[in-house]
């Protein structure tokens, strides 16, 4: 297990390194003077000279890369071109908003999805099972940002049940502001998780220890809840870890639609003002987040299921 964990961790680090280097080279490969692109046509020569020195653009490319990594290791993602604030601070100020949105989405969609999936598997081929299947496909199909827009239209603008914009202040107000965005992001996951749990549940229900439990006269409800579901739930853990990237992507849209502060809103705003250091800093942080969560999911999976360790 330790050996697997180390190998998986090394792979994660390698991936982040390659991704960050690729991103760095991509910025440098853009035609034209990066300083000019970042500062726009109206920048003063002093400002241009300062940024050139700051980004070490007068140095050879390999030294630029070394300096970039040196700064990165010290937690320095660069400086915001306009305000002069540290990008690290700006990004980590926004991150909690995005994370709380993602966790709220996972929480409600996994809870409902597991419930639906388990119920459908316990009553296979009934009307409710078929309905769950049909609704699952329909939900999986709905892109988060379209759901976000339609729910904004219906529940915030027309019915006025929930606030349309912002994150709110104080715990209840914040939760109130979380409902619609979390609903929009989580909806497609309900169907996905439900299908997953149903499939793995049906597999588990056919196994020997369940049959033995039945033979001992343990009630069906207890078998489902405390024997089968415990095992059937495992794939969900991996899927959520791997799905972190999708969740982050959906969060970008939800933040725009509901005008919530967060990583996504930060990136979009920075793109329109051509604030490259912030765009790159946010992409870097979100990529790292994604790689770490995928690796964690793999590790949890390997810990729970030793067969996964021997696979590539």
């Amino acid at each position: 297990m330790l050996q697997y964990a180390l190998r998986r961790f090394a792979l994660a680090v390698l991936i982040v390194l390659v991704a960050v280097t690729a991103m760095f080279l991509m910025i440098r490969a853009v035609p034209g003077d990066p300083v000019q692109i970042m500062l726009g046509p109206r920048a003063t020569p002093e400002l241009q000279a300062r940024l050139t020195a700051e980004l070490a653009l007068d140095q050879p490319i390999w030294r630029q890369l070394v300096i970039f990594y040196g700064n990165l290791l010290q937690g320095d993602l660069g400086t915001d071109v306009f305000s002069g604030r540290s990008v690290t601070n700006i990004v980590f100020q926004q991150l909690p908003h995005t994370l709380s949105l993602i966790f709220a989405s996972i929480l409600w969609s996994a809870a409902l999805g597991i419930g639906l999936g388990a119920y459908a598997a316990a009553h296979p081929n009934t009307l409710i099972d078929r309905m769950t299947a049909a609704i699952s496909v329909a939900f999986v199909a709905a892109p988060a940002f379209v759901v976000a827009l339609l729910s904004l239209l219906i529940f915030a603008v027309n019915l006025k049940w929930f606030p349309a914009i912002g994150v709110g202040e104080g715990i209840w107000d914040k939760l109130d502001h979380l409902v619609l965005p979390a609903f929009a992001i989580g909806l497609s996951w309900v169907g996905y998780v439900a299908r997953l749990v149903r499939a793995s549940m049906l597999e588990v229900m056919g196994e020997n220890h369940i049959r033995t439990a039945r033979a001992f006269g343990i009630s069906e409800g207890r078998i489902v809840l405390s024997y089968a579901l415990r095992i059937a739930i495992l794939p969900v853990v991996t899927v959520i870890g791997v799905g972190m990237g999708f969740l982050l992507s959906s969060a970008v849209f939800a933040e725009i639609v509901f005008a919530r502060p967060g990583l996504g809103k930060l990136v979009i705003d920075s793109i329109t003002t051509r604030n490259y250091p912030i765009v790159m800093g946010s992409v870097l942080v979100s990529t790292t987040l994604f790689v770490v969560s995928t690796a964690l999911a793999d590790l949890i999976n390997a810990w729970l299921d030793p067969r996964a360790r021997s696979e590539n």
Binding site: A19, L248, V279, V283, T287
Partner: peptide, 24 residues
């Protein structure tokens, strides 16, 4: 090639798209 695949997949799609759009 697997490292190449894993690296591309390590960018959240929309974030990758935003980075590319920001650049080109």
């Amino acid at each position: 090639l697997m490292l190449f695949f894993d690296t591309i997949r390590s960018f959240p799609t929309v974030m990758f798209a935003l980075a590319v759009v920001a650049l080109v």
